[in-house]
Amino acid sequence: MPSTRTQSLSLLSAAALVLAGALPAVAQDVPDDLTVMPAVSNDYQPARTPWGDPDFRGTWPINDIAELPVERPDRFGMRHWKTDEELAAEQGRVEALEQAYESEDHQGTIGLGHWIEYQAGSRRTSMIVEPANGKLPRLTRQGIHDAAEMRSSWVVGQTFDWVDDFDSWDRCWTRGFPASMLPFRYNNGIRIFQAPGYVVIVLEMLGTRIIPVGNTAQWPAGVSGMFGQSRGRWEDHNTLVVETTNLQPGASALNIATRGVPPNNTLPMSRQARTVERFHMIGPDTITYELTYADPVMFEAPFTLRMDWTRDDAYEFFEYACHEGNVQIRNYITADRAAREAEYARGRMVEPIDPDAGPPPAMDPASRGVGNRN
């Protein structure tokens, strides 16, 4: 499973490293003023499909932006861009990591070095371009309340009694949306297919989006899905615009395995959440992806992310075989109950956990777990 304690520690260690790789296919337009984010170019004329739509078909893995954080680190202030000196410092870490790979290969001990692979070279300081400070807007009072109610294996000190004490990613169900469109630590493949009236986005980890392009009726308000209803349209000559509504709350709006996201995997979502995505093809091998997210119930303001996707049609998808080895849920529950029994034996709990006493309290949403009976 992706979110076991052992793996989470490994991910945190690996996240400090940057893997060598090619720069994006289209050079980044870095202004003299590093606090300025230029508008997306619309000069490029993409090839056309046989039925006349801009041709976005291909494989667009986003490993090369896995080191780009969603929120801007404080040290960059209002800068959208890194300096030459900051980029050179990253290259030093790249060289050290390459030596570690060679050592693994030589010793026959291939491990995280080849499991979690990034590429270096991004001049950007964060995915967020709006607000200009590169930070997520504050949660509303309702957002703070709902975040505190969410359950996940990433919440330190939480009790585990039943499957609903875990998030949708723990349970190999979904990473949620828009979280699924952002880079993770592995399985970062994105493949685009097109047919007349449709664009299909296949994600290497947990998900496929089928997007009608053109006039499509809005779903009724009572119908929802984890990826929501996405409706696309072509804009100008090089841009696909996709609006998504009818999202099913439950998963975290942004996933903890993406760099620069708040901890705990508990960013709440309401039924009023909506996104607007813009896929700009700015060169034969580059798509600039923009995502604007708005949820007035949970966030005080909308925010916009922007990043470049680089074509790599040689990239191979690997099965994300999550359920086959998913013993995490059972093990968490078993271990957590055993630990609390030990605490009770030492006089630190009000009552024991009796496995024959019926459903555990965490099956009752009002109970918030056995730990709150102390």
Score class of each variant (00 low, 15 high):
2 P>I: 03
7 Q>D: 05
9 L>C: 04
10 S>P: 07
11 L>V: 08
20 A>Y: 02
22 A>T: 11
25 A>V: 09
34 L>M: 14
34 L>E: 11
37 M>P: 05
48 R>E: 10
62 I>R: 03
63 N>I: 02
66 A>N: 15
69 P>F: 00
71 E>L: 00
88 A>D: 13
100 A>I: 13
103 S>F: 09
107 Q>V: 00
108 G>C: 14
125 T>C: 15
135 K>H: 06
137 P>C: 06
143 G>W: 10
149 E>N: 08
149 E>F: 00
153 S>W: 06
153 S>R: 05
155 V>D: 03
163 V>N: 11
165 D>L: 04
178 P>Y: 00
185 R>Q: 09
192 I>K: 03
194 Q>G: 05
194 Q>I: 04
195 A>W: 07
216 T>L: 01
224 S>H: 11
228 G>P: 11
247 L>H: 06
264 N>C: 08
265 N>D: 14
266 T>W: 06
266 T>N: 14
269 M>W: 02
271 R>M: 05
277 E>Y: 03
286 T>N: 08
298 M>R: 15
306 R>S: 02
310 T>D: 02
311 R>D: 11
335 A>H: 08
335 A>S: 13
336 D>I: 02
336 D>Q: 05
339 A>S: 11
344 Y>A: 10
351 E>L: 14
353 I>Q: 14
356 D>A: 15
360 P>N: 10
